[in-house]
């Protein structure tokens, strides 16, 4: 069976590698997205709860660094979502990826503007619902991932989603080298999305403490917060993460668990990790694959090294799309 890497979606975007940068709030800056797109992957700006003008600033940054298409990852729960979409449409962004929530109310206008839409899905049924609404691809993200996560692993989720839908499926979660990318293709994915691996790219602007923490991390060094109160997120272990989990258990034992108080504890902590490198108080969101990542190198090298290894393993030409 031939492995098909030249799917029309990636071809249309002129990508050289079927590798996508996962949108990352605070960490996924314009500089990193531009480096990845320029090298032939698909870079994404992470926007979290930003205002429209913050998003515009990063879009302009990418455009000043590359002519290649790139994407914007949006948080549908954000209060500023309307102005963020206005900016995305005005700026003619190529692709929108969506995290938690339902992008379908915005689908018609995004498609009218020629924008490709791909939501992250944690289950088969959500993937099917998204396909019915008319999205262009889905990102099946396993719980190995850094950041907010679902319940299934990449290994189990990807083939089940692939069997359930007829649009391209991009595999995410736990992919850090060519073996992971080849595995994604073996599971039937059309491409691979990576977050954690790109955090230690030279062009990644996260605090040096954050990069060092990923490079030092071992296989067992992540922990999931929010298991009990919801909003599960995978982060590298530190004081803040361990306290969070402990408080969560205490909170639950109370008659009325205060989810809002816990949320407050969480908010802002990712920014503190990314921008300030706050070792004790930051939420260093990163995936289980951190243990495999041992170096900082340019995004272009990450992509070409991974693709060389992946194509070697799959026994296909190291040709570009």
């Amino acid at each position: 069976m031939a492995v098909i890497v030249n799917n029309p979606l990636f071809k249309k975007l002129g990508m050289k590698y079927p590798i996508v940068e996962g949108g990352m709030t605070w960490a996924g800056t314009g500089a990193l997205a531009a480096a990845i797109s320029e090298a032939g992957g698909l870079g994404f700006i992470g926007t979290g709860y930003w205002h429209g003008e913050d998003v515009r600033r990063e879009i302009k940054r990418v455009k000043s660094l590359t002519d290649k298409p790139f994407g914007v990852n949006v948080m549908l729960l954000s209060r500023h979502i309307r102005e963020v979409f206005d900016v995305i449409i005005e700026e003619g962004v190529a692709v929108v990826a969506t995290g938690a929530g339902d992008p379908s109310p915005f689908l018609a206008e995004l498609h009218a503007a020629g924008i490709i839409v791909m939501p992250v899905v944690p289950s088969v049924s959500l993937a099917q619902m998204m396909e019915k609404k008319g999205v262009d691809a889905v990102i099946a993200e396993g719980m190995e991932s850094g950041g907010h996560i679902g319940m299934l692993t990449t290994m189990t989720l990807v083939p089940q989603v692939v069997d359930a839908v007829n649009i391209p499926v991009i595999a995410a979660g736990g992919i850090g080298d060519g073996r992971g990318v080849a595995a994604a293709f073996m599971l039937g994915a059309a491409g691979a999305q990576m977050g954690t691996r790109f955090l230690t790219a030279t062009e990644s602007e996260i605090h040096p403490n954050f990069k060092a923490k990923i490079i030092k991390a071992k296989d067992i060094d992540t922990i999931v917060t929010g298991n009990i109160l919801g909003n599960r997120a995978r982060v590298l272990k530190n004081k803040m993460a361990k306290n969070f989990v402990k408080n969560e258990v205490n909170e639950l034992q109370k008659e009325k668990p205060d989810a809002a108080a816990m949320e407050k504890l969480e908010s802002g902590t990712l920014r503190r990790a990314v921008q300030e490198g706050d070792k004790d108080g930051g939420a260093f969101m990163a995936g289980q694959i951190s243990g495999l990542i041992k170096d900082e190198k340019p995004a272009a090298d990450i992509l070409s090294d991974i693709w060389t290894q992946a194509t070697d393993l799959m026994g296909i030409d190291n040709t570009t799309l």
């Binding site: 339902d102 379908s104 619902m129 019915k132």
Partner: peptide
């Protein structure tokens, strides 16, 4: 929440209607 998506997905198919995920 994942169970609910599953239910919504099946309700959509069985009644041939569209529901908002949210």
């Amino acid at each position: 929440s994942l169970d609910l998506f599953e239910v919504l997905n099946r309700v959509e198919d069985d009644f041939d209607i569209k529901l908002a995920v949210a």
